[in-house]
Design a protein around this nucleic acid. Structure first.
Lengths: 221, 221
DNA sequence: TGTACATCAGTGAACGCGCGTTCACTGATGTAC
DNA sequence: TGTACATCAGTGAACGCGCGTTCACTGATGTAC
Protein backbone atom coordinates (compact mmCIF):
# COMPACT_ATOMS: atom_id res chain seq x y z
CA UNK A 1 0.00 0.00 0.00
CA UNK A 2 1.57 3.22 -1.25
CA UNK A 3 -0.19 5.23 1.43
CA UNK A 4 1.13 3.08 4.23
CA UNK A 5 4.67 3.48 2.96
CA UNK A 6 4.34 7.24 3.24
CA UNK A 7 2.83 6.95 6.70
CA UNK A 8 5.72 4.80 7.83
CA UNK A 9 8.18 7.22 6.27
CA UNK A 10 6.62 10.09 8.21
CA UNK A 11 6.78 8.02 11.36
CA UNK A 12 10.47 7.35 10.81
CA UNK A 13 11.16 11.03 10.17
CA UNK A 14 9.56 11.73 13.52
CA UNK A 15 12.18 9.51 15.12
CA UNK A 16 15.29 10.19 13.10
CA UNK A 17 14.71 13.44 11.27
CA UNK A 18 14.68 13.89 7.54
CA UNK A 19 17.88 11.84 7.36
CA UNK A 20 15.88 8.88 8.65
CA UNK A 21 14.22 8.66 5.27
CA UNK A 22 15.73 5.46 3.90
CA UNK A 23 14.11 2.81 1.79
CA UNK A 24 15.60 0.06 3.89
CA UNK A 25 14.54 1.71 7.11
CA UNK A 26 11.00 2.02 5.89
CA UNK A 27 10.96 -1.57 4.67
CA UNK A 28 12.33 -2.73 8.02
CA UNK A 29 9.65 -0.82 9.91
CA UNK A 30 6.98 -2.36 7.69
CA UNK A 31 8.36 -5.89 8.10
CA UNK A 32 8.94 -6.25 4.43
CA UNK A 33 12.04 -6.45 2.27
CA UNK A 34 13.43 -3.32 0.69
CA UNK A 35 12.78 -4.27 -2.94
CA UNK A 36 9.07 -4.58 -2.17
CA UNK A 37 8.91 -0.79 -1.97
CA UNK A 38 9.82 -0.58 -5.63
CA UNK A 39 6.38 -1.86 -6.53
CA UNK A 40 4.99 1.44 -5.31
CA UNK A 41 7.73 3.98 -5.87
CA UNK A 42 10.27 3.85 -8.63
CA UNK A 43 12.99 5.19 -6.38
CA UNK A 44 13.67 6.81 -3.04
CA UNK A 45 13.57 10.21 -4.73
CA UNK A 46 10.07 9.54 -6.02
CA UNK A 47 8.96 8.68 -2.53
CA UNK A 48 10.51 11.88 -1.18
CA UNK A 49 8.75 13.89 -3.84
CA UNK A 50 5.44 12.31 -2.85
CA UNK A 51 6.10 13.19 0.78
CA UNK A 52 6.98 16.77 -0.13
CA UNK A 53 3.83 17.21 -2.18
CA UNK A 54 1.77 15.76 0.67
CA UNK A 55 3.41 18.11 3.14
CA UNK A 56 2.81 21.22 1.04
CA UNK A 57 -0.78 20.20 0.55
CA UNK A 58 -1.17 19.58 4.26
CA UNK A 59 0.06 23.07 5.21
CA UNK A 60 -2.18 24.52 2.57
CA UNK A 61 -5.17 22.54 3.74
CA UNK A 62 -4.51 23.42 7.37
CA UNK A 63 -4.49 27.11 6.51
CA UNK A 64 -7.56 26.89 4.33
CA UNK A 65 -9.41 25.01 7.00
CA UNK A 66 -8.50 27.54 9.68
CA UNK A 67 -9.66 30.34 7.41
CA UNK A 68 -12.95 28.60 6.69
CA UNK A 69 -13.55 28.08 10.39
CA UNK A 70 -13.12 31.80 11.00
CA UNK A 71 -15.40 32.72 8.11
CA UNK A 72 -18.17 33.86 10.39
CA UNK A 73 -16.04 36.19 12.46
CA UNK A 74 -14.14 38.71 10.35
CA UNK A 75 -11.65 38.86 7.54
CA UNK A 76 -8.96 40.12 9.86
CA UNK A 77 -9.52 37.18 12.15
CA UNK A 78 -9.28 34.95 9.10
CA UNK A 79 -5.89 36.40 8.29
CA UNK A 80 -4.79 35.94 11.89
CA UNK A 81 -6.09 32.37 11.83
CA UNK A 82 -4.12 31.66 8.69
CA UNK A 83 -0.93 32.87 10.33
CA UNK A 84 -1.56 30.75 13.41
CA UNK A 85 -2.36 27.72 11.30
CA UNK A 86 1.01 27.91 9.58
CA UNK A 87 2.75 27.78 12.93
CA UNK A 88 0.52 25.14 14.40
CA UNK A 89 1.04 22.84 11.47
CA UNK A 90 4.79 23.34 11.67
CA UNK A 91 4.91 22.54 15.36
CA UNK A 92 2.72 19.50 14.91
CA UNK A 93 4.73 18.21 11.97
CA UNK A 94 8.23 19.46 12.63
CA UNK A 95 10.00 17.05 10.34
CA UNK A 96 7.66 17.41 7.42
CA UNK A 97 8.18 21.12 7.85
CA UNK A 98 11.93 20.62 7.74
CA UNK A 99 11.44 18.47 4.69
CA UNK A 100 9.84 21.26 2.72
CA UNK A 101 11.54 24.34 4.16
CA UNK A 102 14.76 23.06 5.66
CA UNK A 103 18.16 22.05 4.38
CA UNK A 104 18.00 20.42 0.99
CA UNK A 105 18.37 16.64 1.10
CA UNK A 106 21.77 15.70 -0.30
CA UNK A 107 21.51 14.34 -3.81
CA UNK A 108 17.80 15.01 -4.09
CA UNK A 109 16.49 17.61 -6.48
CA UNK A 110 12.81 18.38 -6.42
CA UNK A 111 10.94 18.22 -9.74
CA UNK A 112 9.59 21.74 -9.55
CA UNK A 113 6.77 21.15 -11.98
CA UNK A 114 5.26 18.71 -9.50
CA UNK A 115 6.34 20.45 -6.37
CA UNK A 116 5.54 24.07 -7.08
CA UNK A 117 1.74 24.10 -7.35
CA UNK A 118 1.09 22.67 -3.87
CA UNK A 119 3.85 24.90 -2.50
CA UNK A 120 1.84 27.91 -3.58
CA UNK A 121 -1.36 27.04 -1.79
CA UNK A 122 -0.62 28.88 1.45
CA UNK A 123 0.29 32.08 -0.38
CA UNK A 124 -2.69 31.86 -2.63
CA UNK A 125 -4.93 31.64 0.39
CA UNK A 126 -3.33 34.55 2.23
CA UNK A 127 -3.31 36.59 -0.94
CA UNK A 128 -7.00 35.89 -1.40
CA UNK A 129 -7.81 37.22 2.05
CA UNK A 130 -5.77 40.36 1.47
CA UNK A 131 -7.57 40.92 -1.79
CA UNK A 132 -10.95 40.58 -0.12
CA UNK A 133 -9.89 42.93 2.63
CA UNK A 134 -8.90 45.47 0.02
CA UNK A 135 -12.08 44.95 -1.94
CA UNK A 136 -14.16 45.49 1.18
CA UNK A 137 -12.30 48.67 1.97
CA UNK A 138 -10.78 47.40 5.21
CA UNK A 139 -7.27 47.39 3.83
CA UNK A 140 -5.78 50.30 1.93
CA UNK A 141 -3.26 48.91 -0.53
CA UNK A 142 -2.19 52.32 -1.74
CA UNK A 143 0.68 53.01 0.68
CA UNK A 144 2.05 49.50 0.25
CA UNK A 145 1.78 49.72 -3.50
CA UNK A 146 3.96 52.81 -3.28
CA UNK A 147 6.55 51.13 -1.11
CA UNK A 148 7.22 48.22 -3.44
CA UNK A 149 10.68 48.84 -4.84
CA UNK A 150 10.58 49.37 -8.62
CA UNK A 151 12.81 46.44 -9.55
CA UNK A 152 10.63 44.13 -7.50
CA UNK A 153 7.52 45.58 -9.13
CA UNK A 154 9.05 44.76 -12.49
CA UNK A 155 9.72 41.21 -11.44
CA UNK A 156 6.22 40.78 -10.10
CA UNK A 157 4.86 42.04 -13.39
CA UNK A 158 6.79 39.31 -15.21
CA UNK A 159 5.79 36.70 -12.67
CA UNK A 160 2.17 37.70 -13.02
CA UNK A 161 2.24 37.19 -16.76
CA UNK A 162 3.99 33.85 -16.45
CA UNK A 163 2.02 32.38 -13.57
CA UNK A 164 -1.44 33.54 -14.44
CA UNK A 165 -2.09 34.85 -10.93
CA UNK A 166 -3.53 38.32 -11.22
CA UNK A 167 -2.81 40.15 -8.00
CA UNK A 168 -1.64 43.70 -7.38
CA UNK A 169 2.02 44.19 -6.52
CA UNK A 170 1.12 45.28 -3.03
CA UNK A 171 -0.72 42.05 -2.31
CA UNK A 172 2.12 39.80 -3.36
CA UNK A 173 4.50 42.03 -1.50
CA UNK A 174 2.42 41.84 1.65
CA UNK A 175 2.06 38.09 1.34
CA UNK A 176 5.82 37.75 1.26
CA UNK A 177 6.18 40.21 4.13
CA UNK A 178 3.77 38.18 6.21
CA UNK A 179 5.51 35.00 5.25
CA UNK A 180 9.03 36.03 6.21
CA UNK A 181 7.83 37.25 9.58
CA UNK A 182 5.83 34.15 10.35
CA UNK A 183 8.48 31.89 9.01
CA UNK A 184 11.32 33.40 10.99
CA UNK A 185 9.52 32.79 14.24
CA UNK A 186 8.35 29.33 13.36
CA UNK A 187 11.71 28.13 12.15
CA UNK A 188 13.63 29.42 15.13
CA UNK A 189 11.03 28.10 17.52
CA UNK A 190 11.01 24.72 15.83
CA UNK A 191 14.73 24.24 16.22
CA UNK A 192 14.62 25.31 19.83
CA UNK A 193 16.35 28.68 19.50
CA UNK A 194 13.48 30.73 20.87
CA UNK A 195 12.33 28.95 23.98
CA UNK A 196 15.54 29.42 25.97
CA UNK A 197 15.26 33.17 25.45
CA UNK A 198 11.54 33.73 25.81
CA UNK A 199 10.16 30.73 27.63
CA UNK A 200 6.72 31.07 26.15
CA UNK A 201 6.78 31.33 22.39
CA UNK A 202 2.99 31.33 22.12
CA UNK A 203 2.38 34.82 23.38
CA UNK A 204 5.36 36.10 21.45
CA UNK A 205 3.93 34.67 18.28
CA UNK A 206 0.47 36.10 18.89
CA UNK A 207 1.88 39.49 19.66
CA UNK A 208 4.07 39.58 16.57
CA UNK A 209 1.24 38.45 14.35
CA UNK A 210 -1.03 41.06 15.80
CA UNK A 211 1.65 43.71 15.32
CA UNK A 212 1.80 42.77 11.67
CA UNK A 213 -1.94 43.12 11.32
CA UNK A 214 -1.89 46.53 12.91
CA UNK A 215 0.85 47.64 10.51
CA UNK A 216 -1.71 46.85 7.85
CA UNK A 217 -4.21 49.01 9.68
CA UNK A 218 -6.23 45.98 10.74
CA UNK A 219 -7.59 45.38 14.21
CA UNK A 220 -8.55 42.00 15.58
CA UNK A 221 -11.39 43.23 17.78
CA UNK B 1 47.10 20.92 10.89
CA UNK B 2 43.80 21.17 12.73
CA UNK B 3 43.01 24.43 10.99
CA UNK B 4 43.42 22.96 7.55
CA UNK B 5 41.05 20.12 8.38
CA UNK B 6 38.36 22.64 9.22
CA UNK B 7 39.06 24.60 6.06
CA UNK B 8 38.72 21.46 3.99
CA UNK B 9 35.53 20.54 5.81
CA UNK B 10 34.07 23.95 4.99
CA UNK B 11 35.11 23.50 1.39
CA UNK B 12 33.35 20.14 1.23
CA UNK B 13 30.21 21.57 2.79
CA UNK B 14 30.22 24.15 0.04
CA UNK B 15 30.04 21.31 -2.48
CA UNK B 16 27.84 18.74 -0.78
CA UNK B 17 25.97 20.57 1.94
CA UNK B 18 26.17 19.81 5.61
CA UNK B 19 25.74 16.14 4.78
CA UNK B 20 29.07 16.29 2.98
CA UNK B 21 30.75 16.48 6.34
CA UNK B 22 32.45 13.08 6.55
CA UNK B 23 35.78 12.19 8.01
CA UNK B 24 36.65 10.05 5.06
CA UNK B 25 35.63 12.70 2.61
CA UNK B 26 37.80 15.26 4.33
CA UNK B 27 40.71 12.87 4.47
CA UNK B 28 40.28 12.09 0.79
CA UNK B 29 40.25 15.77 -0.11
CA UNK B 30 43.41 16.29 1.92
CA UNK B 31 45.19 13.31 0.36
CA UNK B 32 45.60 11.64 3.67
CA UNK B 33 44.10 8.53 5.24
CA UNK B 34 41.04 8.85 7.43
CA UNK B 35 42.67 7.76 10.69
CA UNK B 36 45.13 10.64 10.36
CA UNK B 37 42.32 13.02 11.28
CA UNK B 38 42.09 11.40 14.69
CA UNK B 39 45.35 13.02 15.64
CA UNK B 40 43.55 16.36 15.61
CA UNK B 41 39.95 15.58 16.50
CA UNK B 42 38.83 12.77 18.73
CA UNK B 43 35.77 12.11 16.58
CA UNK B 44 33.66 13.48 13.80
CA UNK B 45 31.35 15.04 16.36
CA UNK B 46 34.24 16.96 17.89
CA UNK B 47 35.13 18.31 14.49
CA UNK B 48 31.53 19.36 13.90
CA UNK B 49 31.46 21.11 17.23
CA UNK B 50 34.61 23.01 16.30
CA UNK B 51 33.03 24.05 13.01
CA UNK B 52 29.88 25.20 14.76
CA UNK B 53 31.82 27.27 17.27
CA UNK B 54 33.82 28.82 14.44
CA UNK B 55 30.65 29.62 12.53
CA UNK B 56 28.95 31.29 15.47
CA UNK B 57 32.07 33.30 16.15
CA UNK B 58 32.27 34.29 12.51
CA UNK B 59 28.71 35.64 12.42
CA UNK B 60 29.36 37.44 15.66
CA UNK B 61 32.62 38.91 14.39
CA UNK B 62 31.02 39.95 11.09
CA UNK B 63 28.31 41.82 12.95
CA UNK B 64 30.71 43.44 15.38
CA UNK B 65 32.96 44.52 12.56
CA UNK B 66 30.08 46.04 10.61
CA UNK B 67 29.00 47.92 13.71
CA UNK B 68 32.48 49.21 14.35
CA UNK B 69 32.76 50.42 10.77
CA UNK B 70 29.54 52.41 11.17
CA UNK B 71 30.65 53.88 14.47
CA UNK B 72 31.24 57.29 13.02
CA UNK B 73 27.84 57.59 11.42
CA UNK B 74 25.00 57.02 13.86
CA UNK B 75 23.71 54.42 16.25
CA UNK B 76 20.73 53.75 14.03
CA UNK B 77 23.01 53.10 11.11
CA UNK B 78 24.98 50.78 13.34
CA UNK B 79 21.85 48.79 14.05
CA UNK B 80 21.03 48.71 10.37
CA UNK B 81 24.56 47.60 9.58
CA UNK B 82 24.30 44.79 12.11
CA UNK B 83 21.15 43.51 10.44
CA UNK B 84 22.73 43.65 7.02
CA UNK B 85 25.84 41.90 8.27
CA UNK B 86 23.80 38.95 9.48
CA UNK B 87 22.34 38.49 6.05
CA UNK B 88 25.58 39.08 4.21
CA UNK B 89 27.40 36.52 6.27
CA UNK B 90 24.62 34.00 5.71
CA UNK B 91 24.66 34.48 1.96
CA UNK B 92 28.42 34.28 1.85
CA UNK B 93 28.54 31.16 4.00
CA UNK B 94 25.28 29.40 3.24
CA UNK B 95 26.33 26.00 4.50
CA UNK B 96 27.92 27.18 7.67
CA UNK B 97 24.70 29.05 8.25
CA UNK B 98 22.74 25.87 7.69
CA UNK B 99 25.10 24.13 10.05
CA UNK B 100 24.25 26.42 12.94
CA UNK B 101 20.64 27.31 12.21
CA UNK B 102 19.36 24.54 9.97
CA UNK B 103 18.17 20.99 10.43
CA UNK B 104 19.99 19.21 13.20
CA UNK B 105 22.64 16.76 12.00
CA UNK B 106 21.38 13.22 12.58
CA UNK B 107 23.06 11.65 15.57
CA UNK B 108 24.91 14.79 16.54
CA UNK B 109 24.09 16.61 19.73
CA UNK B 110 25.82 19.89 20.39
CA UNK B 111 27.57 20.28 23.73
CA UNK B 112 25.71 23.40 24.76
CA UNK B 113 28.26 24.52 27.29
CA UNK B 114 30.75 24.97 24.45
CA UNK B 115 28.32 26.04 21.81
CA UNK B 116 26.16 28.56 23.63
CA UNK B 117 28.56 31.38 24.41
CA UNK B 118 29.60 32.05 20.80
CA UNK B 119 25.96 31.62 19.75
CA UNK B 120 25.08 34.60 21.89
CA UNK B 121 27.53 37.06 20.38
CA UNK B 122 25.20 38.47 17.71
CA UNK B 123 22.44 39.12 20.25
CA UNK B 124 24.80 40.63 22.72
CA UNK B 125 25.95 43.09 20.08
CA UNK B 126 22.47 44.07 18.94
CA UNK B 127 21.34 44.34 22.54
CA UNK B 128 24.28 46.60 23.26
CA UNK B 129 23.29 48.99 20.48
CA UNK B 130 19.68 49.07 21.63
CA UNK B 131 20.84 49.86 25.13
CA UNK B 132 22.99 52.72 23.92
CA UNK B 133 20.15 54.05 21.80
CA UNK B 134 17.94 54.02 24.87
CA UNK B 135 20.63 55.60 27.04
CA UNK B 136 21.09 58.39 24.50
CA UNK B 137 17.37 59.05 24.40
CA UNK B 138 16.94 58.05 20.75
CA UNK B 139 14.91 54.98 21.59
CA UNK B 140 12.02 54.98 24.01
CA UNK B 141 11.84 51.56 25.60
CA UNK B 142 8.71 52.39 27.59
CA UNK B 143 6.05 51.26 25.08
CA UNK B 144 7.92 48.07 24.31
CA UNK B 145 8.44 47.34 27.95
CA UNK B 146 4.67 47.54 28.33
CA UNK B 147 4.03 45.19 25.44
CA UNK B 148 6.16 42.33 26.74
CA UNK B 149 3.69 39.63 27.78
CA UNK B 150 3.87 38.97 31.52
CA UNK B 151 4.83 35.30 31.29
CA UNK B 152 7.70 36.20 28.99
CA UNK B 153 8.77 38.97 31.36
CA UNK B 154 8.88 36.38 34.12
CA UNK B 155 11.01 34.10 32.02
CA UNK B 156 13.39 36.89 31.11
CA UNK B 157 13.71 37.74 34.78
CA UNK B 158 14.82 34.17 35.48
CA UNK B 159 17.11 34.13 32.47
CA UNK B 160 18.70 37.39 33.57
CA UNK B 161 19.52 35.99 36.98
CA UNK B 162 20.93 32.81 35.54
CA UNK B 163 22.92 34.25 32.64
CA UNK B 164 24.34 37.33 34.26
CA UNK B 165 23.26 39.57 31.37
CA UNK B 166 21.55 42.60 32.82
CA UNK B 167 19.26 44.03 30.17
CA UNK B 168 15.73 45.38 30.43
CA UNK B 169 12.93 43.09 29.25
CA UNK B 170 12.19 45.38 26.36
CA UNK B 171 15.72 45.14 25.02
CA UNK B 172 15.79 41.37 25.00
CA UNK B 173 12.34 41.37 23.52
CA UNK B 174 13.36 43.74 20.75
CA UNK B 175 16.49 41.74 20.05
CA UNK B 176 14.40 38.64 19.51
CA UNK B 177 11.90 40.60 17.42
CA UNK B 178 14.68 41.84 15.21
CA UNK B 179 16.15 38.39 14.99
CA UNK B 180 13.01 36.58 13.88
CA UNK B 181 12.38 39.15 11.19
CA UNK B 182 15.89 39.11 9.86
CA UNK B 183 16.14 35.38 10.14
CA UNK B 184 12.92 34.66 8.29
CA UNK B 185 14.06 36.59 5.28
CA UNK B 186 17.57 35.24 5.30
CA UNK B 187 16.53 31.63 5.67
CA UNK B 188 13.94 31.74 2.92
CA UNK B 189 16.27 33.65 0.65
CA UNK B 190 19.09 31.22 1.30
CA UNK B 191 17.06 28.20 0.27
CA UNK B 192 15.82 29.92 -2.83
CA UNK B 193 12.21 30.47 -1.79
CA UNK B 194 12.26 34.24 -2.13
CA UNK B 195 13.92 34.95 -5.42
CA UNK B 196 11.25 33.33 -7.61
CA UNK B 197 8.65 35.57 -6.02
CA UNK B 198 10.53 38.84 -5.69
CA UNK B 199 13.43 38.67 -8.07
CA UNK B 200 15.55 41.09 -6.12
CA UNK B 201 15.80 40.12 -2.49
CA UNK B 202 18.23 42.95 -1.72
CA UNK B 203 15.80 45.80 -1.84
CA UNK B 204 13.20 43.72 -0.06
CA UNK B 205 15.61 43.11 2.75
CA UNK B 206 16.62 46.76 3.05
CA UNK B 207 13.04 47.84 3.09
CA UNK B 208 12.01 45.35 5.72
CA UNK B 209 14.97 46.22 7.91
CA UNK B 210 14.21 49.89 7.58
CA UNK B 211 10.56 49.25 8.42
CA UNK B 212 11.68 47.55 11.59
CA UNK B 213 13.81 50.53 12.54
CA UNK B 214 10.96 52.92 11.99
CA UNK B 215 8.72 50.79 14.20
CA UNK B 216 11.29 51.54 16.85
CA UNK B 217 10.98 55.21 16.05
CA UNK B 218 14.41 55.30 14.48
CA UNK B 219 15.27 56.96 11.19
CA UNK B 220 18.25 56.13 9.07
CA UNK B 221 18.79 59.63 7.73
C1' DT C 1 -17.06 -27.93 -10.26
C1' DG C 2 -12.42 -28.46 -11.85
C1' DT C 3 -8.35 -27.36 -14.35
C1' DA C 4 -4.89 -24.26 -16.73
C1' DC C 5 -3.11 -20.11 -16.82
C1' DA C 6 -1.85 -15.12 -16.03
C1' DT C 7 -1.00 -11.64 -12.75
C1' DC C 8 1.77 -9.53 -9.53
C1' DA C 9 3.14 -8.42 -4.53
C1' DG C 10 6.81 -9.70 -2.23
C1' DT C 11 11.43 -12.53 -1.44
C1' DG C 12 16.33 -13.42 -0.95
C1' DA C 13 20.67 -12.98 -2.61
C1' DA C 14 23.81 -10.12 -4.51
C1' DC C 15 26.12 -5.70 -6.52
C1' DG C 16 29.09 -1.90 -5.20
C1' DC C 17 29.41 1.71 -2.38
C1' DG C 18 30.61 4.79 1.69
C1' DC C 19 30.75 5.42 6.44
C1' DG C 20 33.27 5.99 11.62
C1' DT C 21 36.45 3.90 14.25
C1' DT C 22 40.31 0.54 16.01
C1' DC C 23 44.75 -1.22 15.76
C1' DA C 24 49.44 -2.37 15.23
C1' DC C 25 52.73 -0.45 12.42
C1' DT C 26 56.29 2.64 9.91
C1' DG C 27 59.44 6.02 9.28
C1' DA C 28 60.93 10.63 9.52
C1' DT C 29 62.33 14.14 12.83
C1' DG C 30 64.37 15.97 16.74
C1' DT C 31 66.83 15.43 21.23
C1' DA C 32 70.36 13.73 24.70
C1' DC C 33 74.48 12.10 25.65
C1' DT D 1 80.64 14.53 15.27
C1' DG D 2 78.25 10.29 16.03
C1' DT D 3 75.09 7.20 18.10
C1' DA D 4 70.82 5.72 20.71
C1' DC D 5 66.54 6.80 21.67
C1' DA D 6 61.84 9.01 22.07
C1' DT D 7 58.25 11.29 19.77
C1' DC D 8 54.51 11.32 16.90
C1' DA D 9 52.13 12.28 12.28
C1' DG D 10 50.48 9.34 9.25
C1' DT D 11 49.57 4.41 7.11
C1' DG D 12 47.11 0.26 5.73
C1' DA D 13 44.26 -3.27 6.86
C1' DA D 14 40.33 -4.52 9.05
C1' DC D 15 35.78 -4.31 11.86
C1' DG D 16 30.84 -3.98 11.30
C1' DC D 17 27.52 -1.33 9.62
C1' DG D 18 23.86 0.67 6.44
C1' DC D 19 22.63 2.27 2.07
C1' DG D 20 19.91 2.14 -3.04
C1' DT D 21 19.14 -0.76 -6.56
C1' DT D 22 19.01 -5.16 -9.71
C1' DC D 23 17.62 -9.64 -10.58
C1' DA D 24 15.58 -14.06 -11.06
C1' DC D 25 12.43 -16.28 -8.30
C1' DT D 26 8.16 -17.90 -5.52
C1' DG D 27 3.69 -18.51 -4.38
C1' DA D 28 -0.81 -16.90 -3.51
C1' DT D 29 -4.82 -14.99 -5.86
C1' DG D 30 -8.05 -14.43 -9.32
C1' DT D 31 -9.81 -15.42 -14.07
C1' DA D 32 -11.20 -18.15 -18.27
C1' DC D 33 -12.71 -21.98 -20.15
Amino acid sequence: MAEQIKTTARQLMREHGTAGLTLRGIARAMDVTAPAIYHYYASLDDLITALIVDAFNAVGAAIEEAVTKAAGVSRTVQLFAAMLAYRRWALEHPFEFQLIYGNPIPGYVAPEAITNPPARRPFAEIGRILLELAREGQLDLQPFQASVPPNIAAHIEAWRRESGYDVPDAVLYLVVSAWVRIHGMVWLELLGHLRPLLGDADSFYYQQAEAFLSELGLRLK
